[in-house]
Simulated scan of single mutants.
Amino acid sequence: MKKLVLTGAAGRLGSYLREPLSQLCDEFVSSDIADNVSNLAQNETYVKADITDLDAMTTLLEGADMVVHFGAVGDEAPMDVLWGPNFYGAYTVWEAAYRNKLRRVVYASSIHAVGMHKKTDFIGIDAPHKPDTFYGLAKCFAEDLASLYWDKRGLESVCMRILSCAQPTNSRAVGTWLSYDDLIHMVERAINTPITGFSVVYGVSNNDRAPVDNAKAQHLGYRPKDNGEQFAAEIYSTDGPLDPHDPANTHHGGPFAAVELGNSGMAHLNLDTDDTGKH
């Protein structure tokens, strides 16, 4: 394609995506609120822009074919913290995409949009929204916004409900792991699938214990290759028996399902200090 835009480019997952996405287009524009990013690709331009600024987003997306939207606060927080970047920021991206006649928005949604479903319920992409936090509620809002803009304005979207895109360090991650290679593969398929309409897909690797079903997202051609089972024996022996009555163990949202609204869920994920991002 001619021009592709990535928001949230200075974040951990955005940083992984920059190089592969630059190979899919003639002109690649990465954006975030950071002053700059390093190691720009030959065809990459970095633009500092705030996703809560509709005019800035409209300018950013001018002439683009698609936008990959990863910009947001990446953890549970009080509503007044999330309202701008996670709620209104989603609106500005879709509205700017519509005003610029983009074909598609590829969105980093999250398992937390359905995080209060029980893990023993093998949910599909059509599971009703059941957010576990204000953060998850923002993902529900953006998914519904995506659906609305497709139904009323013909703007395609792929909403990727990412589970755990970080090195597995806990029992939950054996099933919810999304490897970085599979993340890149999923985003590429969300971009290059000819027709998507409004689509939802779970961002999870080919794990033996994956707790979600992508059967109704087969049209995207997302075929993950990595498997979290390789971590099972060591992690399970370290964690020991889990409390079967703790919502952090029994619900799709993990610790996000157990924390009080407005309190960090990330703080309970036991992630490596050098690998702390999650959507």
Results as ranks from 00 to 15, higher is better:
Pro78Ile: 13
Val47His: 08
Ala41Gln: 15
Leu137Arg: 04
Ser15Gly: 15
Asn36Lys: 13
Thr169Tyr: 00
Glu76Phe: 06
Asn170Ala: 08
Pro255Arg: 09
Asp272Ser: 14
Ala64Cys: 13
Asp55Cys: 01
Asp55Ala: 15
Lys152Thr: 14
Val29Gly: 02
Gln230Asn: 00
Glu143Met: 08
Leu6Lys: 09
Asp208Gly: 06
Arg153Tyr: 15
Tyr202Cys: 06
Leu178Thr: 03
Asp65Thr: 15
Val212Asp: 03
Gly265Arg: 01
Phe256Leu: 06
Pro247Trp: 10
Gly175Phe: 03
Asp80His: 12
Ile235Ala: 03
Asn86Lys: 10
Ile191Val: 12
Val81Asp: 13
Glu76Ser: 08
Leu4Gln: 01
Ser110Trp: 04
Asn192His: 09
Phe28Val: 03
Arg209Trp: 10
Tyr222Arg: 05
Leu145Asn: 09
Pro131Gln: 10
Ala146Gly: 15
Arg223Trp: 01
Leu54Ser: 15
Glu234Lys: 11
Met79Asp: 12
Ile235Arg: 00
Ile195Arg: 09
Thr176His: 12
Gly8Trp: 01
Asp181Cys: 01
Leu54His: 15
Asp32Tyr: 03
Thr58Tyr: 01
Ala232Val: 05
Met66Trp: 05
Lys139Gln: 05
Ser15Met: 02
Lys119Thr: 14
Ile195Asp: 15
Leu271Thr: 10
Tyr149Thr: 13
Pro131Phe: 05
Ala257Gly: 11
Arg153Asp: 10
Leu178Met: 11
Ser205Ala: 13
Cys165Ser: 07
Asp55Arg: 05
Ile195Thr: 13
Phe134Ile: 04
Ala108Ile: 05
Glu188Pro: 00
Val73Ile: 14
Trp177Cys: 00
Ala34Arg: 06
Ala127Gln: 03
Gln23Asp: 09
Ser171Asp: 12
Pro247Thr: 13
His69Tyr: 13
Ala127Lys: 05
Asn249Leu: 08
Val105Thr: 05
Asp132Gln: 01
Leu220Glu: 03
Leu13Gly: 04
Asp80Thr: 10
Gln42Lys: 12
Phe70Cys: 14
Asp208Thr: 15
Gly154Gln: 08
Thr133Leu: 03
Leu13Tyr: 00
Met160Phe: 07
Glu27Ser: 10
Leu242Cys: 00
Arg189Trp: 00
